[in-house]
Simulated scan of single mutants.
Amino acid sequence: MEEKFIVYYAGDRKGPFTIKELKQFKIQRYDLIWQENTSTWIEAHKVEALKSLFDDFLPAPRKENLPEVDKRAMYSNSNVGNIEFLSNRTVKIYYPNYIVHYRYASFIERLLARIIDIFIIIIPAAIIPILPAWLYFSLMHCSTDQQTLGQKVFNIKLESADGKKVTFGQSTGRFFANILNALTFLIGYLMFFFNSKNQCLHDMLADTIVVSEIGREKR
């Protein structure tokens, strides 16, 4: 039986496809592929059975065939990453020993996570305004996991858009920038639906993205 493959494309899973169907689908080398008997997503050009679909010997592929990538400077320690924003609405962040693939978190995931977080801090916030909420969100977002308890439930996390670890100053700025969403009659939240990185106004001001891991590979 001919092997089939799942493609992660435009924020959703497509397929399964045969190799012939993938060729008609015009799969690109950086699209993420899920094979049978595997436990992670992998770039198409790294799948042995699909290498014939790509010409690795061309000195430079045509520009229009390349994914849209925003590459940042290389790093020298675990606090600094090299990030790529791909045209299939996924993100790659390079760490010292592995590469993690992310998708952007959905609006529903973010909303439900925020509701959980509100229930967690509602009592202390009622006693002392602003301070408990500020410390909760800022400290959790700059922690090792870079996620609040609500975000942990939905397996989403905050990442800096430059691939580096989120800092306390950055998470603090994001928290107070969130107030602007209310001052703009929630238009700041609606901006989520009108940009390629699913960013609300406070994400854009803090230069952060909210993502969910979909796979990783060793370097």
Results as ranks from 00 to 15, higher is better:
F25K: 11
I42T: 12
M74Q: 02
F194I: 14
L32R: 02
S87P: 09
H101C: 02
M191T: 14
S39N: 15
I118A: 04
R29Y: 14
A206E: 04
E48L: 06
E3D: 13
S106H: 13
Q24A: 10
R174V: 11
K63L: 13
L111E: 08
T172K: 01
H101K: 08
K197N: 14
F168I: 02
F54V: 07
K20F: 13
L205W: 07
L180D: 00
I123S: 10
Y189S: 02
N198I: 08
N77K: 12
D117E: 03
A125E: 12
P59L: 14
E213V: 09
I99A: 07
V7I: 15
G169D: 09
E36I: 00
F175T: 01
R29C: 00
V91W: 05
A177Y: 07
I214A: 03
Q28F: 09
L111K: 11
E159Q: 08
F175P: 04
I116T: 05
F168C: 01
R103G: 05
F17T: 02
S39M: 10
E21G: 02
L186G: 12
I42Q: 01
F175L: 01
V69H: 05
S52D: 11
T38F: 11
L131S: 04
S196Q: 15
H202F: 01
D31M: 09
M140S: 15
T184Y: 06
A105N: 03
K92V: 10
I93G: 01
S106G: 14
H101T: 09
H202Y: 08
R29S: 15
C200S: 13
R216S: 08
T148A: 06
K46H: 10
C142V: 11
Q146Y: 00
I6L: 12
V210E: 01
L186D: 10
Y8T: 07
R174L: 12
I115A: 09
T38Y: 13
Q147E: 13
N37M: 14
F137R: 03
E43H: 03
D12S: 15
